[in-house]
Design a protein around this nucleic acid. Sequence first.
DNA 1: GAGAAGAGTGACGAACTCGTCACGCGCGCC
DNA 2: GGCGCGCGTGACGAGTTCGTCACTCTTCTC
Lengths: 238, 238
Amino acid sequence: MSTFEYAMPDNPTILIVDDEEDVRELVGSNLRRAGMRVVEAADGLQGILFARSQMPNVVVLDVMMPGRDGLQVCAELRADEVTKDIPVLMLTAKGQTSDRIAGLERGADDYLAKPFSPRELVLRVQALLRRAIVSKEAGALKEGPFELDLAGVKLTIDGAHVDLTLLEFKLVHLLVSRKGAVVDRDTILREVWGYADNVRTRTLDTHVKRLREKLGAHADWIQTSRGFGYVFKAPAQA
Amino acid sequence: MSTFEYAMPDNPTILIVDDEEDVRELVGSNLRRAGMRVVEAADGLQGILFARSQMPNVVVLDVMMPGRDGLQVCAELRADEVTKDIPVLMLTAKGQTSDRIAGLERGADDYLAKPFSPRELVLRVQALLRRAIVSKEAGALKEGPFELDLAGVKLTIDGAHVDLTLLEFKLVHLLVSRKGAVVDRDTILREVWGYADNVRTRTLDTHVKRLREKLGAHADWIQTSRGFGYVFKAPAQA
DNA sequence: GAGAAGAGTGACGAACTCGTCACGCGCGCC
DNA sequence: GGCGCGCGTGACGAGTTCGTCACTCTTCTC
């Protein structure tokens, strides 16, 4: 069984907030070795300022700090519209469950107790980065040869633009976003056309036909589930 | 300092995969009490089947199971296009760092060692759900009274739906996404209409007029910068 | 195999979308 | 203040989109 591999963002920025220089150095060098750009803040206030100005991809945040502690910093990041969505991984002494709960309640995404394996730290940061990737891709959808650009209301298949009407785009978007699952007729009519349930109409059939015509050789990615609805999935092999 | 609060998705679905019925019951009752819908699978294979058919919001997955263990299940979920993005939280016996590392390497998002606090479990599931919320919101844009749903190609103003043509939607989307910045005519024509630079046309003027008509009382959010283009910004006060 | 039901298909026409034109209004410069 | 230019406006018409209809084909059940 091979190790799972995700693509990483190019040179992600990680902000380390810890008053202990040796911890910053340990964490920093390991993250740099893993291909990340590291910014260091020596206290909570500096951490908040850097989070706002640098917009890092992940914040690694020590709980025990003089002045503003990690719990306070996390709460402030979450309360600020600019930084509220930045993933936060908290470092703590070999603390109790109650400490971890306090952090999670303040919006932390993950927790790691000192002393920790540098390898585990890197992997946890990478797991948080993966979630950010999924988030970034929400404005686009790629399945098989199909690529939907939601902002531009554009479909391309194997790199070639396919000219769709708005209704056709909504239809293929619904089916692609539920790839592999049969979407029943009432659901399609409700979500694409805004119809109530149990409406008798042939317009869906007509639009599926028109969409398939435009998909050309890839028409068979949209398959009929008789008596139920339609499903977007790869054609069976010959 | 008050506890941080995030909105939760309506009735999220959590899939629990564990061969021990008492663990499934403990985890399940706590998640249900927290407002979540719970699906249970008694072994790895059933877990994979349910993940595909139910598309849960989070999978809670035990490592130690006869037959297909949690590491294998996680790897298979990640290898499958349909389930690859579902967040996975792994449960293990009081294991070593090396076990956690193996799970993270196979694509798990989080880890919790038995015995665990039910409160901590709920919070960690909620943290994973929050990440899913951020992901869902990437397809929306909100500025002042304007809300654009990119996936649905829908504009609402102060909660009221505004019926736009595709071109009008693209136009308002471009302006809103650059809120406060003047977008010059050539840029608008290029990005919305696909025209080359220096095209002489009045169609933009006409469409801005039509869009303003549809915006009614909010027409003055779209302002003319004479000789340059248009800008989306809050109207000056009287 | 027969019949019923569901989906595919081609064609029609109403409604909508979009670009252009010509006139009028407003702004900025001399 | 006058003039020129840019933008607003109403109207027109070509082209497109969309829903419906009727016929045909396919699938499923008895």
